[in-house]
């Protein structure tokens, strides 16, 4: 009976991580042909240097135009995030398995998964086809795109809270709506705020991209400068986007940390 024993030992060695590593290695080998490129003998390094050289120095004369377009991008992101939060909250309540009946939760999660399947650029193409090439298309596209993510995040937040708190308020005589408002919602609220801020940051980056297909904002300018090979101006836009994203990242990170501190996950032990 030694052969079955050896087989079993091999099976035991094949844990999930080993299997994943083997599958990844096989996938990498299978993917190697894509590294061939066009097959022509190109001087890639010289190409890169020549291309990047056109970016420098950035043409700062377009700064006023870029600032105005960035403002529009910001507005698109703000409104899209706001609408997405408003749509996601009820959807997330339906999708939270601890709050809603199981069939409803499954249906809501399926709907959100479908929304998430489409990238923001595809949502933008659809929105431009429906409402035309304008900032409204950006708002519509990013709203739908964000609902897929925020709905899932909020549902997870509702599922992560301690339901006994709300049950305790019920036992003390509170109405179910009061138990939700004061027992469940305050626990989920910091997470909801934190995730909404993250979505706003994300939408700012996305709003720069959706403009490529005409959905307003800085992306429209980016596309125009690329079309006319004005790479020095293109570089100015990129630098402005970079500055905005870094600033938002810094502010957002601090705000999120402050919000999540209110849940007390890190401080509870320190207070003892």
């Amino acid at each position: 009976m030694s052969a079955p024993k050896r087989g079993r030992a091999l099976y035991e060695r094949l844990d999930l991580e080993t299997v994943l590593a083997l599958l990844l290695a096989a996938a990498a080998v299978w993917s190697l042909p894509v590294l061939r490129g066009s097959g022509r003998d190109l001087d890639h390094w010289a190409n890169l240097k020549r291309f990047l050289g056109r970016f420098l120095p950035p043409d700062l004369s377009v700064l006023p135009d870029v600032a105005a377009a960035l403002g529009e991008t910001f507005r698109i992101a703000v409104l899209a995030t706001l609408f997405a939060v408003a749509l996601s909250l009820p959807l997330a309540l339906c999708a939270a398995r601890t709050v809603s009946p199981r069939p409803l939760a499954l249906l809501a999660r399926l709907a959100m998964n479908m929304v998430r399947t489409l990238p923001s650029l595809v949502w933008a193409l659809v929105a431009v086809a429906v409402v035309g090439a304008n900032p409204l298309a950006g708002v519509v596209a990013l709203t739908f795109y964000s609902v897929g993510y925020l709905g899932k995040f909020f549902a997870d937040a509702f599922e992560s809270v301690d339901l006994k708190v709300a049950a305790g308020l019920r036992a003390l005589g509170a109405h179910p709506i009061q138990a939700f408002q004061y027992g469940l919602w305050p626990q989920a609220r910091p997470l909801v705020w934190s995730q909404s801020l993250w979505m706003l940051e994300y939408n700012l980056r996305s709003a720069a991209i959706v403009g490529y297909v005409g959905a307003g904002g800085i992306g429209v300018q980016l596309h125009a400068y690329q079309e006319y090979y004005q790479w020095d101006r293109f570089a100015t836009v990129l630098l402005c986007i970079l500055a905005l994203v870094i600033a938002l990242d810094l502010v957002g990170e601090r705000l999120r940390a402050r919000l999540l501190r209110r849940t007390g996950s890190a401080e509870t032990l320190a207070a003892d």
Binding site: V165, L169, L172, G173, A174, H175, Q187, R262, G264
Partner: peptide, 20 residues
């Protein structure tokens, strides 16, 4: 079963929610 994100005072006041 206190609400972890609310101050102690608010938690105590919440006992009387059902009166309203």
């Amino acid at each position: 079963r206190l609400v972890p994100t609310l101050p102690l005072l608010d938690n105590v006041c919440l006992a009387r929610l059902g009166r309203h």
